[in-house]
Computed example of a mutant assay.
Amino acid sequence: MSKVLVLYYSSYGHIETMANAVAEGARSAGATVDIKRVPETAPAEVAKAAHFKLDQAAPVANIEQLADYDAIIVGTPTRFGRMPSQMASFLDQAGGLWMRGALNGKVGGAFTSTATQHGGQEMTLFSVITNLLHFGMTVVGLPYSFQGQMTLDEITGGSPYGATTIAGGQGQRQPSANELEGARHQGKLIAETANKLFAK
């Protein structure tokens, strides 16, 4: 079975929660899954003053580890319609991997959160997907096989480009059951795709 990395950055825990759901979905497809986060680049005093969630269980990744996986699923919140500097800084270190084609043919995907329904979820997903395509990866989104993204019965995230959640302007809203199910669905689909490509 495939080896999957769920790589994320989370300021307040929303993406951390989504990352765990993505990992659950990938494991349900038989994949071996690691969850890792990128380093926090904000000064410690700034992060504490902004009440960042600094006690996250996932170990911090280093860029060379990306080459060890068959699939990489990247989760990040939105900053002004794109990925935040913490994730961008981490991916910017992948020049060596790109030069030697270390990620060519691997499977990739993205998931995100925004404060509001119209806060740039799809633009943020595209900002991640652009990186994955430059790395030579095969991108898997959240197709309409996950019907939950079509619901009109509740406010919900979800996009054909990747799983999403809406956090609220003060971060007061946690991922809903529907959003978490979308994350599991995407994780499972990415793992199933990697299993087919990397069957041993």
Rank of each mutant, 00 (worst) to 15 (best):
I35S: 11
S159L: 05
D70C: 04
S176Q: 04
I35E: 10
A88I: 04
A19W: 04
T114C: 05
M1E: 04
T116H: 07
E24G: 02
P77K: 09
T32R: 06
G148D: 09
G109A: 08
G169V: 03
I73M: 03
G25K: 04
H14N: 07
Q170H: 09
A21M: 09
H134T: 05
E45T: 09
E122D: 15
Q186E: 14
G157H: 15
A23H: 06
K196C: 01
F135Q: 08
L142R: 00
E192P: 05
T156I: 14
V128G: 02
T112Y: 10
G119H: 00
I166Q: 02
S2K: 01
L97M: 15
A29E: 01
L132N: 04
I166H: 01
L180P: 07
A199D: 06
V38M: 04
N62A: 05
N20Y: 00
A29F: 02
K188Q: 15
V140K: 13
G75R: 15
E122H: 07
R27F: 03
N20D: 01
I190M: 11
A88F: 07
H51T: 10
Q117S: 02
I15C: 04
L132H: 10
Y12D: 05
A42Y: 14
S10C: 13
P84K: 10
G171S: 06
